[in-house]
Amino acid sequence: MPLQPAPIEKKTDIPEGVWLRCEGCGEMLYTREFEEMLRVCKVCHHHHRLDARTRIKQLVDEGTFEEFLADLVSTDPLQFTDRIPYKERLQQIQEQSGEKEAILVGKAYIKGRGVILGVMNPAFIMASMGAVVGEKVTTAAERAVEDNLPLVLVTASGGARMQEGMVSLVQMAKTSAALAKLDDAGGLYITVLTDPTTAGVAASFAMLGDVIISEPKAMVGFAGPRVIANTIKAELPDGFQTAEFLLERGFIDRIVERKELRSEIARLIDYCGK
């Protein structure tokens, strides 16, 4: 079940040359240093959420990201209205974020290795998956087959997008089917789980990586913690549904610090890539 959308972080939240407070430990951090640390707290190592453009900038060789399907937008198949019409919600978020949808996909180089890259944007309706996200992930997988390149997806999502109803749910099957094709073709698929990767996205392409790595302390799970607590009528254990919890239970391969991601992905490609 999709999680509640989080408040939108504006890009301008972190102006140059001022102090800001770590969301993990509350420590005051100098912004320039914080950016140099890839938005990781130098005190508690809290990995702050990144918008997709910042993530791509951090991850790929400078200037190599060539985006595809950049202008796909939802057609609002259900004519959905909650507190405001879905169309309006999309417009608002598009203006605020400067992005058209919750994922960017394209071709890029990481330490000189060509990849098909997809990066989800937690600032866009909690990176929930509707028809556009499904289509972009599917096309990315198909492009990885065509171009004989590894596929790297950086996931973050509240799950399927409720405002698109069943159209969202079937994207889980669509993306998984495309990943089966990539698997059949012998392509490498790496997923990088980031905070939060949950529900319909966790239960489809996020958990299907040949190698699954995660940033530290990322929340990764299927059902929302409140739903679970209500069902079992008990408190949830500490660290429940974190990357560390999943590593312990055998569901992810490695936990990797943000600053190591580039070299880690390159290393994996060297072992498995063609």
């Binding site: 059949d184 799970g221 299927f222 059902a223 069902t231 079992i232 949830l236 239970r249 569901f251």
Partner: peptide, 27 residues
């Protein structure tokens, strides 16, 4: 109603189990 929302289900990888079914059933 849906997959069971509980601690055991998460501990044993409900996301992964469903994801793998989707992928495998497609082929």
């Amino acid at each position: 109603q849906g997959a069971y929302p509980g601690i055991g289900a998460e501990e044993r990888g409900i996301s992964q189990a469903i994801a793998v079914n989707l992928l495998e059933m497609s082929r």
